[in-house]
Design a protein around this nucleic acid. Structure first.
Lengths: 147, 147
DNA sequence: CCGGATCCTAACCGATACTG
DNA sequence: CAGTATCGGTTAGGATCCGG
């Protein structure tokens, strides 16, 4: 993963000491943002009703398990990256709507390949895991040996 | 990100208390493994000389910045997932070679879309970030307001 | 309703030392 | 050479409280 730089919301926001930048290998350009726990769910939900805007609370209700804090942080980072637009209406009570930019929508199609791979292979991966865990080949001794 | 379950090498390896499993949205199937820091670099290097096996030390030398520990952990997890095969030769000194499985090789092509997106949009993202940071719109007050 | 501030925990990951 | 074990820093992310 490329460590592009400090995201909003990290204490690493204040000071970055030994930020070794990590040489990106060609196919390694998966932005750190995508590795964040809630980024993909948020983008996904924003894109479902494509072109539509979603209120903060709507997102919070639809994305199961996300906390207010993490939704705010995720949206802030996406906004900063230019993937999401924030529309603020200074009413009482306040209303805020979020909308995917074109660039943000583009990520999803980019992710399709990954998604297909996962759905195609998830069952097999899980089977491999069970097999590995069962044979408990944690120690070198029990590994398959060749000559 | 799907939290499939505990990876090898986490202390969470011992006991998982409240492992809330996270409902995957359709396009959310990006395995946690891909979010790990070294997974993509390792797969990438294994695929470069496609079909070839690579020794542990070869990988360690080629992947800049990776530590012995993290390479071991990453390879173990990939092996467990069935993405990598480990060939162990009990010589002295020992020799171990790693090889991508077909399934493992498939991930890279799945990642191509993401990689293209990144290379196409990275510059723009960084520009958005600079703009955002400059205008320092951390407070709601300075946000764009609509009526 | 939206989100900032704070505290707390888990766990990723680096550094280092030690083995067959 | 290819690991394993251990320690510790740093960070992601959850819970909670508060404010406009």
């Amino acid at each position: 993963m490329i460590r592009l730089e400090k995201p909003i919301g990290s204490r690493f926001d204040k000071q970055n000491k030994g930020g070794r930048p990590f040489r990106p290998v060609p196919s390694n350009g998966i932005c750190t943002r995508l590795g964040d726990k809630w980024t993909v769910p948020v983008i996904w939900h924003l894109s479902v009703a494509s072109g539509q805007r979603l209120r903060f609370s709507a997102l919070k209700n639809e994305i199961e398990g996300i906390t207010q804090r993490m939704l705010t942080l995720t949206l802030r980072n996406l906004e900063r990256d230019g993937l999401v637009v924030r529309h603020y209406f200074p009413e009482v009570p306040p209303r805020v709507e979020y909308e995917l930019t074109d660039m943000g929508a583009g990520i999803l199609s980019a992710l399709e390949g990954v998604n297909f791979w996962i759905t195609d292979n998830l069952a097999h991966v899980e089977q491999c895991r069970r097999a590995y865990d069962d044979s408990e080949q944690r120690t070198v001794k029990t590994c398959s040996v060749e000559t």
